[in-house]
């Protein structure tokens, strides 16, 4: 029976919403959906899967690429090879996907954001999200995919009957890599997720010396200043102010993005804002695809002009 094996993304007892995207692409592929997850109590709609396989092990063991490979070997020996092994394009999902690709010598396409059923082609972003590559596997057999969050969730639906539930009793645990502990982000007084109006700056501001002028603009607008990954990486703004998958997910009334090109990890953290306004000198910047209003201009000139108007 042809099936797709979905590896659940779970974290600290939560069944992540991104799992809807791995399920959604399965619906498009028209495969029997087999979900593999740790045997722990998670809250989600089980009726969306044909079969659920629960591995009797700790979540941290399951999330380790060295262990998940062994679990999947057990699934394959019981059910035969799947047509696809599908994971979320998350920190742990992509980590496990590529390690399995190497271990089992299987093709892998990561960060898939579209599928053309007629031509059996997967779309993957290239070159700052400005170009899509149309990919296909060049060999028969299983293909591993990681899928971009938000890309396929609209295609999910419930099955006619409740899922079959199976168990994997024995999971071998690798000593070569072991979980030690979670490390929480330091608490700070600023919580950008509470702000109604965020002025967010990106790589386009050029250098750290520009920050005070954007802070001043934020002050005049009564907005809170936040930033995208490059600004945080370069320590121009503190980590607590980072918008994006590895930082905060924000939904302000207005998100004013200046000099942010719109890498997908950033978009994922702000796309549900009520109103997105993007200012960028590059008319091709992907952020304009998600913005409600756009300005193609030199961001420093816009900043200085706004300050003039507001101060005057």
């Amino acid at each position: 029976m042809s099936y797709a094996l979905i590896i659940a993304e779970v974290r600290r007892g939560v069944f992540e919403e991104r799992n809807l995207d791995t399920l959604g692409i399965c619906a498009l592929l028209g495969k029997e959906t087999v979900l593999l997850m740790p045997d722990k109590p998670y809250t989600f709609n089980e009726n969306m899967y044909d079969t659920i396989i629960k591995a009797k092990t700790e979540e941290e063991v399951f999330l380790n690429p060295l262990n998940i490979a062994g679990i999947i070997e057990q699934v394959i020996s019981a059910r035969g090879k799947p047509d696809f092994i599908i994971l979320t394009h998350s920190s742990s999902g992509s980590e496990s996907a590529v390690y399995m690709a190497g271990l089992f010598s299987l093709p892998v396409v990561t960060d898939v954001s579209g599928y053309d059923k007629e031509r059996n082609i997967f779309f993957k972003s290239y070159y700052s999200d400005k170009i899509f590559g149309e990919f296909k596997s060049s060999q028969e057999g299983t293909c591993i995919l990681t899928v971009r969050s938000g890309s396929f969730k609209e295609f999910v639906g419930e099955k006619a009957s409740a899922p079959k539930v199976e168990f994997i009793e024995n999971v071998s645990v690798s000593e070569a890599r072991t979980f030690v502990e979670y490390v929480e982000e330091e608490k700070t007084d600023i919580d950008i997720t509470k702000a109604e109006f965020l002025l967010s700056v990106g790589r386009g501001i050029g250098n750290k010396d520009e920050i005070p002028d954007y802070e001043a603009l934020a002050g005049l607008l009564k907005a809170v200043l936040s930033g995208s990954r490059p600004v945080i990486d370069k320590l121009w703004l503190p980590k607590a102010r980072q918008v994006g998958t590895s930082g905060k997910t924000v939904k302000p009334k207005v998100y004013l993005a200046m000099g942010i090109s719109g890498a997908f990890q950033h978009i994922a953290g702000m796309k549900d804002s009520d109103c997105i306004i993007a200012v960028n000198k590059d008319a091709e910047a992907p952020i304009f695809q998600y913005a409600h209003f756009g300005i193609v201009a030199d961001i420093h000139k816009v900043r200085d002009k706004l300050k003039n108007i507001l101060a005057g």
């Binding site: 941290e60 380790n64 920190s91 030690v180 979670y182 982000e185 607590a240 998958t245």
Partner: peptide, 10 residues
């Protein structure tokens, strides 16, 4: 990981 969380591994 996501959302500001990190994990320490050996």
């Amino acid at each position: 990981l996501e959302g500001g969380l990190q994990e320490r591994v050996k």
